[in-house]
Design a protein around this nucleic acid. Structure first.
Lengths: 225, 225
DNA sequence: CGACATTTGTAGTTTAAGCAACGCTCAAAG
DNA sequence: CTTTGAGCGTTGCTTAAACTACAAATGTCG
């Protein structure tokens, strides 16, 4: 039976969580080795030590998995890097850096051709960014109509900037780029958000560059611990 | 039903392989964090994202798991480090080094008290060493009676040496120690084995020290790939 | 000592994952 | 052109793993 449709909300059974985690991990491994187009369902299942049929019990096809995987990866990164959901200058800085690394990793490590890959990833990333930023903006102030718009604009702007930076050959250090972009994004959020100067947070443990991005997903199953 | 007893030989179902792999991985993770005594079955199962009941479907208790895990770890190391099963001076050298690192890791990283841990590990290691060395010795030459004896003596000697080296405070570099021990072991095997001077093998990819020993088990499930 | 919490094993039932096998499409090789 | 093979998507049946729940053992503290 179609497991997915029945539950959809509650991931009750740990087997489901685990299986999806392994599929995501397998896909991200493979995406470093070959073009997404060239990856088959059989390969994914094999790499995940799962039966091919099990794959279809969870996802319609490899694109559905990619969507799911992308969302998980982004969320996992966001959750790991941003100490709390609230806005702070520091969190904005981290978010920009995170997106930069993410986009850059895709460009660097995923062998072309990126047929449907790029637009799909782009959409997912922007969706998540929108979500985060919407949470940053309080409902109370101003006309609540433009709240969504501000979040949307900021999300697109951020992604666009990161994309451009990633493709730029003369890539300046990410840190520099971030310092340059943050104020521009902040301008979009300005009217809504209290400009608390950053809460002198301690270093995020994840640290510098894009280190364990995909690989980190292998541990994703442990969330329910 | 008792899965284990029915199969015992053929690990047909990948779920079995995977589950045991995850349990081993979980145990080796935990053994770095706390004393083996202090580890509970519940913890192991949780860390492995498995139900506690599933644990008991595979192992009687945590000691049974430890035995299984130890064997797997050692075999995995041996298989990874020794290019082929046959004897060569180079393989002997690697085997000694391997045992040194293994024993040393246990002493270093596994928090005491080592109640039943040490003798159990010792037994398992020696058993595997005996197996390897027995394969090295041809059946044909001399009286085949003493073949087993030679293997046994060599295994014990090797383990003893490694253990002593590991506990020695003024630990000399492993490489030096290996060079010192190899001839002594070789003397035991001498009568049986052709002294081929080492086949100028390329570096083992595993490389230097005890790097990914326990952690490497996380990938153990992929064997059947 | 007794009360309380945790761990340990062991049922019975439900559910997800494995497997073999099928028909389908499509593209490369004969 | 036909044949072969690879991948896709689906089906029915089997089996391993999840869940609930319980009884016994083992701590652990006042």
């Amino acid at each position: 039976m179609l497991v997915k449709e029945i539950q959809e909300q509650k991931h009750e059974d740990p087997r489901i969580t685990r299986t999806r985690g392994m599929l995501t991990a397998a896909l991200s491994e493979l995406m470093r080795e070959k073009s997404f187009n060239a990856i088959t369902v059989r390969e994914i299942a094999e790499r995940a030590t799962l039966n091919r049929v099990t794959f279809y019990a969870h996802f319609q096809d490899k694109f559905a998995l990619l969507e799911y995987a992308a969302r998980q990866m982004i969320r996992q990164q966001i959750e790991a890097q941003l100490p709390n959901g609230a806005y702070s200058d520091e969190n904005l800085r981290r978010l920009v850096l995170l997106v930069c690394n993410f986009v850059s990793d895709i460009d660097q490590y995923c062998p072309p051709p990126h047929g449907q890959l790029e637009p799909l990833m782009e959409k997912k990333i922007k969706t998540e960014l929108y979500d985060v930023m919407l949470h940053w903006l309080p409902t109370s102030k101003k006309t609540s109509a433009s709240r969504e718009q501000a979040a949307m604009m900021s999300a697109w702007a951020l992604y666009g900037a990161a994309k451009q930076w990633s493709q730029d050959k003369a890539q300046k250090p990410a840190e520099d780029f971030v310092r340059q972009v943050v104020p521009l994004i902040k301008a979009n959020l300005q009217p809504f958000v209290e400009t608390n100067g950053g809460q002198t947070a301690k270093r995020a443990h994840g640290g510098g560059s894009s280190s364990g991005r995909f690989v980190s997903l292998l541990r994703l199953q442990h969330v329910y611990r």
